[in-house]
Amino acid sequence: KKKIKIYIENENGEKKTIEIEVEGDIDEIAKELAKKYNVKIVKIEP
């Protein structure tokens, strides 16, 4: 498992940072999160 930080922006332009532990393809997981929460991924840090 890797701990990563995902910087997101919602439709109101509010920026947030999510810190999660992931296993597998980080890009795939980030895309799923973006779709699920309707946010834009700004940056992903390993």
Rank of each mutant, 00 (worst) to 15 (best):
K36C: 14
K15V: 14
E23K: 07
K36G: 01
I4W: 15
I20E: 01
V39Q: 03
T17Y: 10
I8C: 12
A30K: 04
E45F: 08
A30F: 10
G13I: 00
T17N: 03
K35N: 06
K2M: 15
K1S: 09
E14C: 13
I4C: 08
E11F: 12
G24T: 03
E45H: 05
I6R: 00
N12C: 13
A34I: 07
I29A: 11
I26L: 10
I8Q: 00
E19M: 07
K2R: 14
I44A: 02
I26N: 02
I18D: 00
V22F: 12
E14H: 09
K40S: 08
V22I: 11
I8F: 15
Y7G: 01
T17H: 08
V39C: 13
K40N: 06
L33Y: 15
E28Y: 08
T17C: 08
E21I: 12
I8R: 00
K36E: 04
N38L: 04
K36L: 11
K31V: 08
L33C: 08
I41V: 07
I26A: 06
K1Y: 14
V22W: 14
E21A: 07
N38M: 06
V22C: 10
V39L: 08
N38R: 11
E45I: 11
G13H: 05
K3L: 12
G24V: 02
E32M: 14
K40F: 10
V42L: 15
V42R: 02
E32Q: 12
K16L: 15
K35Y: 07
P46A: 12
P46I: 15
E14F: 12
D27L: 13
I4Q: 01
E28C: 11
K2W: 15
A34Y: 06
Y37D: 02
K40Y: 08
K15Q: 14
I6C: 02
P46C: 14
D27P: 04
K3I: 10
K35Q: 08
K2E: 05
N10Y: 15
N10W: 14
I20F: 08
I8V: 13
K36F: 11
D27M: 13
E14A: 08
K5L: 13
K5F: 11
E14M: 11
I6G: 00
I26F: 09
Y7R: 04
I4E: 00
K5R: 14
I6M: 07
T17A: 06
A30C: 13
P46R: 09
E32G: 07
K15I: 15
Y37R: 02
K16C: 15
K1L: 14
L33V: 05
D27F: 13
E21W: 15
K2G: 08
E45S: 06
Y7E: 05
E45L: 08
K36T: 06
I44P: 01
K31Q: 10
A30S: 05
V22E: 05
E32Y: 15
I4S: 02
I29P: 00
A30H: 03
N10A: 12
I26E: 05
E21C: 14
K15S: 12
K36Y: 13
K36H: 06
E28D: 10
G24Y: 03
V42D: 04
N12E: 09
K16R: 14
E14K: 07
A34R: 08
L33S: 00
K5Q: 06
K1N: 06
I41Y: 04
E28V: 10
N38T: 04
K36S: 04
E19F: 10
K2D: 05
G13C: 05
N12D: 10
E45Y: 07
E23Q: 09
E23W: 14
K43I: 10
I44V: 08
I26H: 04
E9T: 07
V39R: 00
I6D: 00
E11V: 11
I8L: 11
D25G: 04
V42T: 06
E14Y: 12
K40V: 11
E23V: 11
L33R: 00
V42Q: 04
I8T: 11
K15N: 09
N38G: 13
K31A: 12
E32T: 10
K35C: 07
K3F: 15
I18F: 13
E19V: 11
K40W: 06
V42I: 15
K16T: 12
I18A: 01
E21Q: 06
G24L: 02
A34T: 05
N10G: 09
E14Q: 10
E11H: 12
N10R: 13
E14D: 10
I26D: 03
K1G: 08
K35V: 05
V22N: 05
N10P: 01
G13E: 02
E11G: 11
I29E: 03
E11D: 10
K5H: 05
I41T: 02
E28P: 04
K3S: 08
E9W: 08
D27W: 15
G13D: 02
Y7A: 02
Y7T: 14
K31L: 12
T17E: 06
K5N: 05
V42G: 01
Y7N: 02
N10K: 13
K15M: 15
L33Q: 00
E21M: 11
I6F: 15
E19P: 00
I8M: 14
Y7C: 06
E23Y: 13
I26S: 04
K2I: 13
D25Q: 05
I6T: 00
K16A: 14
T17W: 14
D27V: 10
K36D: 02
V39I: 12
I6Y: 05
G24R: 03
K1W: 14
K43T: 06
I20S: 01
K36Q: 06
K1A: 09
K31Y: 10
K35G: 03
A34G: 05
K16D: 11
E32D: 08
V22D: 06
I29R: 05
E11C: 12
D25L: 04
E23I: 12
Y7P: 00
I20K: 01
N12P: 01
I44Y: 06
N10L: 15
A30N: 01
K31N: 10
N12T: 09
A34P: 00
I29S: 04
E9N: 04
I26M: 06
K43D: 05
N10C: 14
K5A: 05
E32W: 15
L33W: 15
E32K: 12
K3N: 06
A34M: 09
K2H: 12
N12S: 10
N10M: 15
I4M: 12
K43P: 02
K1H: 08
N10S: 12
E28I: 08
N10H: 13
D27S: 09
V39M: 13
K40Q: 07
K35R: 14
E23N: 08
V22M: 10
K36A: 04
K3M: 13
I6W: 03
I29W: 13
I41D: 01
K43M: 10
E19D: 07
I8W: 14
K3Y: 14
G24S: 04
E32S: 10
E14W: 13
Y7W: 13
E9K: 07
K15H: 13
E9L: 13
G24H: 03
I26Y: 08
I41H: 02
G13N: 04
K1R: 13
I26W: 13
E19C: 11
K3H: 09
K2S: 09
A34W: 06
I8A: 06
K31G: 06
D25N: 11
K15Y: 13
E23A: 09
K16N: 11
I29H: 04
I8D: 00
A30T: 07
E23L: 09
K16G: 14
K16F: 15
I44G: 01
Y7D: 03
I8N: 00
E28F: 08
I18T: 01
V22R: 04
I20Q: 02
E9I: 15
A34F: 06
I29K: 04
N10Q: 11
D25K: 04
N38E: 03
Y7F: 09
K16S: 14
I41L: 05
E21K: 03
L33K: 00
E9M: 13
G13Y: 03
K43N: 06
E9S: 06
K36N: 04
G13W: 02
I18V: 06
I4H: 07
E14V: 11
V22L: 08
K43A: 10
I41W: 06
Y7M: 08
P46Q: 14
E11Y: 12
Y37F: 09
K1M: 13
N38F: 06
T17M: 12
I18Q: 01
E9C: 10
Y37S: 02
K15C: 10
A30R: 05
K31H: 08
I20C: 11
E14N: 07
K3E: 01
E28K: 10
I29T: 04
K3Q: 07
D25P: 07
Y37T: 03
K43C: 09
G13A: 03
K36W: 09
K3R: 14
K3T: 08
I44C: 05
I44H: 02
K1E: 03
E21D: 10
E19Y: 11
A34D: 00
A30L: 15
K40I: 14
N12I: 11
I26P: 08
N38C: 12
I20D: 00
D27Y: 14
V42K: 02
Y37G: 02
I41C: 07
K5T: 12
I44L: 04
I41P: 00
P46K: 08
A30E: 03
K40T: 11
T17R: 03
G13L: 03
I18S: 00
E28A: 11
Y7L: 09
E23R: 08
K36I: 08
K31R: 14
E9H: 06
E11R: 13
K16Y: 15
I18N: 00
I8G: 02
V42E: 04
K31I: 08
P46G: 09
E23D: 12
I18H: 02
G13R: 03
I6L: 11
K40E: 04
K40H: 09
G13M: 04
N38S: 06
E45K: 02
D25M: 04
K35M: 08
K5I: 12
I26Q: 03
I44M: 05
D25F: 04
E32R: 14
A34Q: 06
K31D: 07
